[in-house]
C-alpha cells in the first residue's frame, strides 16, 4: 500500500516537472516570437526631408525627430556656441560644425526604430550626455518590450499556478 502511494507521488512529481518544462519551452518560444517575428507594416512613400538642428551646449534643438522608414533625410546642422558634432547611433552619419557655420549631410533612414544622436566632439563637462532621439517609423522594439512584459506577468502567474503558493500564500 505504502509503496503504491510512493510510486503515485513520484509519478505526480514527474508529471509536474514535465508540465513545468513544457511551460518553460512554450514561454521561451512565445518570447522569441515576440522579439523577432517580422511585422509587415504599411510604410508611407519615402520622401525627402530637410531638418535643421541647432547645437548649443549641451542640447540639440530639436532634440526629438520623427521620420518614416526609407526617407532621404538631409540634416542642416549648426553650432551656436562652441564646436559641436552630431552622429547617429546605428547610422554611418557624422557632421561637425564650427560656431555659426552650418554644415549639411544626407542619409537614407533605412533602419526602423529609435536611435540616439549624440555630440561627437568633446564640448564640455556634459558632452557625454548631449543626446537627441531620432525615430524612424514606428518604434517596434518598444511595442515588443511591452508585449514581452505582458508575457512575463502571464508566465509568472502560470509558473506558480499549481504550487502551494497561490493556495496558501506560502512557498512550497
Amino acid at each position: 500500500m505504502m509503496e503504491e502511494l510512493l510510486s503515485t507521488q513520484e509519478e505526480l512529481n514527474h508529471q509536474s516537472l514535465q508540465t513545468k518544462w513544457r511551460l518553460m519551452v512554450l514561454i521561451s518560444q512565445c518570447a522569441l516570437l515576440i522579439l523577432f517575428l517580422p511585422i509587415p507594416l504599411v510604410t508611407p512613400k519615402p520622401i525627402d526631408r530637410l531638418i535643421h538642428i541647432d547645437a548649443t551646449s549641451f542640447q540639440f534643438t530639436p532634440a526629438e525627430i520623427k521620420v518614416n522608414q526609407g526617407d532621404r533625410v538631409t540634416i542642416e546642422f549648426v553650432s551656436t556656441d562652441v564646436v559641436h558634432g552630431i552622429s547617429i547611433d546605428g547610422y554611418d552619419f557624422q557632421l561637425t560644425s564650427d560656431p555659426g557655420q552650418p554644415v549639411t549631410g544626407t542619409f537614407v533612414a533605412s533602419w526602423p526604430g529609435m536611435f540616439r544622436f549624440r555630440c561627437s566632439v568633446a564640448c564640455g563637462n556634459l558632452h557625454p550626455f548631449m543626446i537627441g532621439k531620432l525615430w524612424v517609423g514606428p518604434n517596434l522594439i518598444l511595442i515588443r518590450g511591452v508585449l514581452l512584459g505582458i508575457l512575463a506577468v502571464v508566465a509568472a502567474i502560470f509558473s506558480l499556478k499549481k504550487s502551494k503558493v497561490l493556495k496558501t500564500g506560502k512557498t512550497s
Binding site: S87, P128, I141, L148, A152
Partner: peptide
C-alpha cells in the same frame, strides 16, 4: 563616440521583462 546598438536595446528589453517576471 559610443552607440546604443540594437543588441544592447534587445538586452535591455529582456532584462526588464525578466524583472517584470521576477
Amino acid at each position: 563616440v559610443g552607440q546604443s546598438t540594437l543588441t544592447s536595446m534587445l538586452l535591455q528589453v529582456i532584462v526588464l521583462a525578466l524583472g517584470q517576471f521576477w
